[in-house]
Design a protein around this nucleic acid. Structure first.
Lengths: 245, 245
DNA sequence: GTGGCTAGTGTAAATATTACACTAAATCAG
DNA sequence: CTGATTTAGTGTAATATTTACACTAGCCAC
């Protein structure tokens, strides 16, 4: 048998691009590093995967330890492995994105990796000179989110449990970086039958209060099982009936 | 500074799910392993990433060495890192899919990893008891291909340079696992203006010969730059004209 | 009670998708 | 050379989806 030892000298990490939504603005959670390399730089919350830990488990642990986040929507996006991306040696990293309701979030990093934890507008990320290749990772995850939000109702993960249609529209506008038509947006969203009308109203706003809605997780599960088809549709030509004479 | 040595004891590999298309049948290229672990099992062409090699470079090298393939369409799909997925230690792998014109392919593996190289129908993969978690990887890549083919004209990578519309339709049917309506398919494909009518005919077939077409890479590049939008469309409400009085 | 603000609503036109069946052109067998 | 066999190629009407667009309703603050 050959000697494989030379291959077992690398490490891998997970990095999380954590999206939140706040007042019409899409944000990403960053930490201020207090560990080399890139000490004092802003970067994505990430860390080495432990020897006995699956990738997803590692991503969830890091979310918990570095950002105090639990039980969030999480999805693997892409691995980054440029030879010289890490000064300590060969380290490839698996990028995840996660979606967080900002209101639920109380920044209590339980660790000594992050000095500070803060939300930044997606638009400002490029000004920060992030650690490692984290800027590229944030970009790729944002593009992925943009694509997926058209095809899966994941936007709700970013909103509080009760929300108005206008809030939902602003969220979509922030993610898709475009304006949407109010009437058409409402028509389309409501026609999907994935919202529960709570028969409650916003209170304390200095204008006509909006109705509150809730995402219908149960109905979504049903749809998933039946299998949506969002895009290109197959021919509905019927099977030829079997003739039994 | 902390001691990070414990983390630098893992390895990573790349694995390729290579798709080809042949006579209405979508296929995956597998190798018969002649190395431990899983010696004599069929598996995906994959190998360790070298210490000074980027991930994509590694994927291309492996394509070349294990399958004799050069210059093919390649896309990273997902990383797999279950703790016990490799008997030699902690190994995570990055799965790629690639698209190959079977006609171009002359199986000349330049290596001692693969004993044999062969195309298998996608439908038969599950009967083969593939090495490692390669079956899951093949499944995930197939799903990814299915999704992407609706949204990008990558199907052409699987066909010879000159093809008929019927061949193209069969390809889509194989990937999407469905039947398509001939007239509607042609209408849609031709309306995209991405095909060049070669004014040539099939020859030597025992029926009315079909016209041959070619994919228009140049026009596709133009489209990409202008930016397609296949799916949800944004509001076309015009900007309010600037009033300069 | 007025002004400022956001919520909420319908319709017609344009576009895209779907279902569907016959004729055309080549080879082959006799 | 004729007819059988096979696949290529084509148009239209019905339906569904998407788009553009503007006014009234209801709350608060002053």
């Amino acid at each position: 048998m050959k000697n494989f030892d030379t291959y077992f000298k690398s490490a891998f990490t997970v990095d999380n691009v954590i999206f939140g939504f706040d007042e019409s603005d899409l944000k990403i959670l960053l930490i201020k590093r207090q560990e080399e390399p890139y000490i004092d730089h802003w970067g994505l919350p990430g860390y080495f995967v432990l020897p006995d830990e699956d990738l997803n488990t590692a991503a969830r642990r890091v979310l918990k330890q570095l950002a105090g986040l639990d039980n969030v929507y999480l999805e693997q996006v892409k691995s980054f492995g440029a030879v010289d991306r890490h000064p300590f040696g060969r380290v490839i990293t698996v990028a995840y994105y996660s979606l967080v309701k900002i209101a639920d979030f109380s920044p209590q990093p339980d660790n000594d990796v992050a000095k500070e934890v803060r939300w930044f507008s997606v638009a400002d990320i490029s000004k920060l000179d992030l650690a490692f290749d984290h800027e590229e990772m944030a970009d790729v995850c944002f593009e992925t989110l943009k694509r997926q939000v058209r095809v899966r109702p994941i936007g709700f993960e970013l909103l509080p449990p009760k929300f108005t249609l206008t809030e939902l529209q602003h969220l979509y506008e922030a993610i898709l970086e475009t304006d949407l038509d109010k009437r058409n947006f409402r028509k389309k969203i409501l026609s999907m039958n994935l919202l529960i009308d709570l028969n409650e109203m916003q209170a304390g706003v200095a204008h006509r209060p909006a109705k509150l809605y809730q995402f219908d997780y149960e109905k979504y599960q049903e749809f998933l099982q039946e299998g949506f088809s969002f895009e290109v549709k197959e021919s509905k030509r019927k099977e030829r009936p079997v003739v039994t004479d």
